[in-house]
Structures are given as C-alpha cells and as structure tokens.
Simulated scan of single mutants.
Amino acid sequence: MPRADFYLIDKPRFREQPLLLVCELARKAHASGQPTLILARDQAQAEALDDLLWAFDPDEYLPHQIAGQDEDEDEAPVLIAPPEIDAPLRPLLINLRDDPPQGAFERVLEVVPAEPAARGPLRTRWKHYQALGFALNKYDM
C-alpha cells in the first residue's frame, strides 16, 4: 500500500529554515538506501536546497544533484527536480510543490509549513491521498 507522510514544522530551527527538514528527510532516506526524488517548487528552491545539502552537515556528504544538469543523474541517490524538468519518479518522493505528484511511487513525504495560513494546499493533498487509498501518517518536527 502506498504511503503519504506529512511532517509538520514545529521546532525553531526548522521554522527558521524549513529546507533543513528536507535535508534531514533526504539524509534518512539515503541512510536506508532509498533513492529519493525531491520535487522542488521552482528553480530557486532547487538551487537553495542544492547549496544546503552541501553545507548542512559538515561531517557527512549527502550525494545529490539537480535534475537536467548531468547525464549520470540516474545514479544520484538524491535528485532535486525543478518543475520545468521532467525527471522520472522514484519510489520515494519529497514533495515541496502545491500539487500532489502524479504517477507511480511507493511513498511521498510532504513538508507542512509552520504558518497555519500556508497549510490549505496540504489539507487538499491529504484528502487526495486518502481518496487514492494511501496509508497516511503525521509527524511533528
């Protein structure tokens, strides 16, 4: 059964820098050997995430790249896809866009902003996944 996990931003460090939570989720996925596709909201967010993945843990390198920049991107454990690049889906997705991903995947991670006003699209996505028969989980981070 496919799964959708919603991570609600709560801790101050994630409130200040929400992309840090994305880095933590990508690190966990990589540690468990799951190739991950991050669906970035736009090119600027993809680049910010690329920079942060280089710097967020000085003791560990998380292999990653932005889709559409290299021929060997299929081998990158963490691939960041801006909307204009049509990257093939992977079993594990981290979705930062307003729309739910379409296609076949096993698990999607949704990062929920701290501001209640920004949570509307996520309620819609929760209902979307529920209607598709996904197992749903919610975590406070």
Results as ranks from 00 to 15, higher is better:
1 M>F: 05
2 P>Q: 09
3 R>W: 01
3 R>F: 02
5 D>G: 06
6 F>M: 05
8 L>D: 04
9 I>L: 10
10 D>Y: 13
11 K>L: 15
11 K>W: 13
11 K>M: 14
17 Q>L: 15
19 L>D: 00
20 L>P: 05
21 L>G: 06
22 V>E: 06
23 C>E: 04
23 C>D: 03
23 C>A: 15
24 E>I: 10
24 E>D: 12
24 E>T: 13
25 L>V: 11
36 T>R: 01
37 L>Y: 03
39 L>P: 03
39 L>Y: 04
41 R>A: 15
42 D>L: 08
48 A>G: 10
48 A>M: 12
57 D>Y: 01
59 D>S: 15
59 D>W: 09
60 E>Q: 14
62 L>H: 04
63 P>H: 02
66 I>L: 03
66 I>P: 03
70 D>T: 15
75 E>L: 15
78 V>L: 12
79 L>P: 03
81 A>P: 11
82 P>G: 09
84 E>V: 13
85 I>N: 08
86 D>W: 04
87 A>R: 11
87 A>W: 03
88 P>N: 05
89 L>V: 11
89 L>E: 05
95 N>Y: 03
95 N>V: 01
97 R>P: 08
99 D>H: 08
100 P>K: 01
101 P>G: 04
103 G>H: 10
103 G>Q: 12
104 A>Y: 09
106 E>K: 13
107 R>W: 00
109 L>M: 14
111 V>K: 05
114 A>G: 03
114 A>Q: 11
116 P>G: 07
118 A>G: 04
119 R>G: 06
122 L>F: 14
124 T>S: 09
126 W>S: 00
126 W>N: 00
126 W>F: 15
127 K>F: 03
127 K>N: 11
127 K>V: 01
127 K>T: 07
129 Y>E: 00
139 Y>W: 09
141 M>L: 15
